[in-house]
Design a protein around this nucleic acid. Structure first.
Lengths: 106, 106
DNA sequence: CCAACATATGCCTTGACAGGCATATACGGT
DNA sequence: ACCGTATATGCCTGTCAAGGCATATGTTGG
């Protein structure tokens, strides 16, 4: 399950796809153009991303419009939380914690 | 490179290693015990994590103590920032006051 | 130096995955 | 229904990484 998300993100091309979709919804053809990937390549990457729940698709005319499914990344975010505490603690010691912390500091 | 970090994190065993090290520094032998991996397996995973800058090692007697290097994950965190904005915006549309409620039971 | 322990590495096999190419399927217009 | 466009999938191949096993390297103490 979660493994699917990690595996999907392991591929640079798929992260490129996500990054484009984060800005705007795009059809497969538009993705192909912007990424200079082949069309089958793109479709396959989209398949993986879809199976991982990272993108969703809808039909518009004869195009399939892909959009990012950002909540699927929240689990990655919560996994990171542990480490974020660690490195921000480290930054604290350097007195460089510029951003305000939502929760009170440790 | 960033790719190294993503590739390193793609493996479940390596994430397990990191999760253990996030709690406390451990020697290789202790990792082997807790993860029920073989020793060479563990050493190889540690090698990958080290090359990715995710852990650091120091010698203590005849043991090698591994510790997590949390700042290496900050780039992953900043990558996530884009998507975090997206999904929190989505949550906003569902009613942002829900997260202020202690128990948002269904 | 030798012994015993702890850890790293080399070799090999196997399985997973990406890319290329051909082709199948779906949709819209006529 | 036919055609062109858009997208998906199947097959094949090369590559790469993980696991198993044996062994090398490094460390401590005698």
């Amino acid at each position: 399950m979660t493994q699917t998300v990690w595996a999907a993100l392991a591929d640079p091309h798929r992260r490129d796809v996500l990054d484009l979709l984060a800005a705007e919804e795009l059809s497969v053809g538009e993705l192909v153009t912007r990424l200079s990937l082949t069309q089958p390549q793109t479709s396959k990457h989209l398949r993986v991303l879809r199976d991982a729940g990272l993108v969703r698709v809808r039909q518009r005319g004869q195009h399939r419009i892909y959009a990012v499914e950002p909540e699927s990344l929240s689990e990655l975010d919560s996994w990171l939380a542990t480490y974020r505490r660690l490195w921000s603690r480290h930054l604290d010691r350097l007195g460089e914690h510029l951003e305000q912390t939502p929760q009170g500091d440790s």
